[in-house]
Simulated scan of single mutants.
Amino acid sequence: MNKLLGIFILILFSTSCSSDLDFDQANDLKLEPVVIANLAFFDMKANQFIVGGVEQPLVGDIMDFKVFEDEDFADSTTRADFFFEFTNTVNRAFIINLYLLDDNNTRLYAIPFSVNAYTVGAPIMVSKTEIFENAKLDILKKTTKIAFAVALLPGPPLNSNSTGSLKLRSSATLYLVFQ
């Protein structure tokens, strides 16, 4: 009886179920991650518009933007959303332009902002989302630098004791597809 039971168990384990494995399914794999990162930040105090006792009507800065240097990463990016938020507590209005530049400092694209002057009460907040898809995304992929130009509009004069600030916080959301 034990021999018969042993043979039965051996036959049972020898005839297990199996199916053909389809390794070609790996070719159909599609990953679509979303990456969110800080883009730029500044906090310009009102008295920073004063240099040598003279009010500066225009200030700016240029930062490197080498995000798309890697060709595989650039090819995988299908969309980019840039979010900007300005907070003004200075009693002056501003016009801010963000310029996308190439290696030769050629302007590829401009994003304008208008920020009203602060009066007593809640700070002035301006937000905007710029979406880059299709042809605009191609422009973004050629960008190697981002420049900010902040123009101080006419109003009450500023001096070294002026209070308030103009703040920027921004982020980038990148949509990728890997196949």
Rank of each mutant, 00 (worst) to 15 (best):
L58S: 10
M63N: 13
D64K: 14
D64F: 09
F65G: 09
K66Y: 12
V67L: 11
F68I: 05
F68D: 01
E69G: 09
E71H: 05
F73K: 07
D75H: 05
D75S: 14
S76E: 11
T78Q: 14
R79C: 13
A80I: 15
A80S: 15
F82G: 11
F83K: 13
F84N: 11
F84A: 11
T87N: 07
N88P: 08
V90E: 00
R92Q: 05
I95A: 08
I95C: 00
I95E: 09
I96A: 04
I96P: 02
N97S: 07
L101E: 08
D102P: 06
N105E: 12
N105S: 13
T106D: 14
Y109A: 02
P112E: 05
T119V: 13
T119N: 11
V120G: 10
A122D: 13
P123T: 05
P123S: 11
V126S: 10
I131E: 05
K136L: 14
L137P: 06
I139S: 06
K142C: 04
K142L: 14
I146G: 05
A149K: 09
V150M: 12
L152C: 07
P154K: 07
P154L: 05
P156H: 01
P156Q: 07
N159K: 02
T163K: 00
T163I: 00
G164C: 06
S165R: 10
S165Y: 09
A172C: 03
Y175Q: 03
Y175R: 01
Y175L: 01
